[in-house]
Design a protein around this nucleic acid. Structure first.
Lengths: 205, 205
DNA sequence: TCGTGTCTTTACCAAATGGTAAAAATTATC
DNA sequence: GATAATTTTTACCATTTGGTAAAGACACGA
């Protein structure tokens, strides 16, 4: 019985849990929590519905597990923002990493966006305990860079919001972007250049 | 029978349709299309479920009606971007209007975001026929401003994306913004100042 | 105030959905 | 290869949900 986090999971258990979570990421990110059904997840995972409930206690536990895993991945680029690096380069690298994530992990981006869009019912605790302290820490770093004259002074909080917004936009609003940029084979590179120019002109002293 | 768009709707009909659409906007924007139930909408509207189905053919028709109405409101700020105005002022006014909309119409913003997030299943036609031509038209206007040297040259398409992303972020990710800006009574004004600075530094020649 | 058309309620229904019990099959252990 | 443990399937179930039929209440002009 694959219950609490006791003991080591078997080979089969690891494989099937991974399959389920991958399928669930597909389905949840596409249809939202309530829009997703266990049957869809089961089919996408190639398992029967009761079999899925053998590995997870229920729909909600799958979703929460996904959200927990996501949180680490999601914060990692901000974690690696180096207080001792070159200020402008650090910010631009952060933008690049976030943009790459929007391209490489669009399902994760949409899962996160959907959760926040609906008021973060299952993630408010994580935002408080995980994101908030990190956010304030890095805001202070950026503020110190501005104080020492290495960057133009703007509100670091809104600066970070604008980085999140502009990068995640390409994943979360992909359906719209695709319609408007339809015959452009150069989408990602164009976005990268634009954002580099934007944040450079904003921040270079 | 309030069927096709024939004849003039009675007083009661107007009032109840408005109530239903307002309630539906609440519910759909909070829970997404599938997450919303007719019972929730009915309760929020103060009507019985069958009574709601007397005014609308079904859940989908309510959603589509909402989306259609939204489209006009949503595009209006872009429509009023004046080719004969002062370029930088026009862009900055557009940013302001979009930011005001995020503050004043957050339900509409989230309804739109949720629809796009899920691949725009019920709005792809509108994007093609309504948004796309307008987008290209205004991109051309901005491009001409850049060509004549009134604005710094950047890709107008990504410029517009970044305006949409940064302004709508405050409505769509309000749950997150609220956690991170929790004791700031000055949220909207701070965002307005930041965005004005950002787009000014980006675009001023 | 009577009758006709508009609106609302009551009582349902079929399908979908999250979930369970227990038997059957499979895998690992000795 | 027998046995114990794990994994999967079959057959269900209760609730929720979008939707309907038809009777009843109401409004309003003649």
């Amino acid at each position: 019985m694959p219950d609490g986090a006791d003991k080591k999971p078997s080979r089969i258990q690891q494989r099937n849990r991974r399959r389920i979570l991958d399928a669930a990421l597909d389905v949840f990110s596409m249809h939202g929590y309530r829009g997703a059904t266990l049957d869809q997840i089961a089919e996408a995972a190639g398992l029967s519905k009761p079999n899925i409930l053998y590995y997870f206690d229920g729909k909600e536990e799958i979703h929460v597990t996904l959200l927990n895993q996501l949180m680490e991945t999601w914060l990692e680029p901000l974690v690696t923002l180096d207080p001792d690096g070159d200020p402008l380069q650090e910010i631009l690298s952060y933008v690049q990493r976030k943009l790459d994530m929007a391209r490489d992990l669009p399902r994760e981006s949409r899962l996160f966006a959907g959760e926040i869009l609906q008021g973060a019912p299952r993630m408010a605790p994580h935002l408080q305990s995980g994101l908030q302290p990190l956010f304030e820490e890095k805001c202070a770093v950026i503020q110190s860079w501005m104080d020492q004259g290495s960057l133009t002074t703007v509100d670091p909080r809104h600066l970070i919001f604008s980085i999140w917004a502009t990068t995640q936009h390409y994943a979360d609003f992909a359906a719209q972007v695709q319609v408007l940029l339809r015959d452009d084979p150069n989408g990602h590179e164009g976005a990268a250049q634009y954002l580099e120019a934007m944040f450079t002109r904003l921040l270079r002293p």
